[in-house]
Design a protein around this nucleic acid. Structure first.
Lengths: 121, 121
DNA sequence: TCATAACGATGACAGATGTAGTCGATTCGC
DNA sequence: GCGAATCGACTACATCTGTCATCGTTATGA
């Protein structure tokens, strides 16, 4: 079930998650930043449909594509994979790592602190 | 420079990071868990050498393969990519996410708390 | 010395991925 | 009514990835 979603496909999913059901045309328009042709977007949508990541509903002669999986679920899976692979499954080393590399701003740290406080209840 | 390292290649790198320079033979032995043949391991080592991720030093007729990149650097790159892609570049949502999904144990949270305290100095 | 073992290099091949063209059918504007 | 636009389906093709076999060469051991 949990077919992986490739990076290009992910970009298409982002559009669908952000802007409800869309036609291929409309999705391509939203993806203007990628400079993909309509054909490319159609291919990606087909592949996503084939792997069950989007649903299609007929709308006259064309399809409306909508996400069939929750973004949070995919994000969870990918996060888990990365944390498993890079940090032995522990989240703390990830945070420590980001911190060490100066990837966390003071605001981030404050935010994390608040989050931790909340989690402790 | 920063060529991506595939998942299979990553497993080979782990072995090299863990056990200094190794011959292909020795690396394959360490990778017994994968059930890869020696030929497969050799291919992966070659590809890693081709992309500059490992260095080779001649040892008689064969090579000793050693990592040419730091694990932390690769981990940083991959983490950043994921956080960018999934959480708009912010680490906090990642942690919040892991927490929400119950991916963080109490011990993790305590650890994170200590880490935050440290970061605040 | 001579078969054999081991080495790196190279070739192979299927599946995934990125990217796009083409085609038969349909609809829409005029 | 009819040509143009548009749709999804199908085809294409280069690259990457996972996985492995084979080859020419060299060292090793009997």
């Amino acid at each position: 079930m949990t077919e992986r979603i490739s990076e290009a496909e992910w970009q298409v999913m982002e559009i669908l998650w952000a802007h409800g059901p869309l036609t291929a045309q409309a999705a391509a328009a939203q993806l203007a930043a990628t400079a993909w042709t309509l054909a490319t977007v159609k291919t990606l949508l087909s592949r996503l449909a084939a792997k069950g990541a989007v649903t299609t509903t007929e709308d006259g002669r064309r399809f409306l594509y909508a996400p069939a999986v929750a973004r949070a679920d995919i994000a969870a899976g990918e996060s888990r994979r990365l944390v498993d692979r890079l940090f032995g499954g522990r989240a703390t080393p990830l945070v420590a790592h980001l911190a060490e590399r100066g990837e966390l701003s003071n605001a981030d740290i404050a935010e994390l602190e608040a989050l931790i406080r909340e989690l402790k209840q």
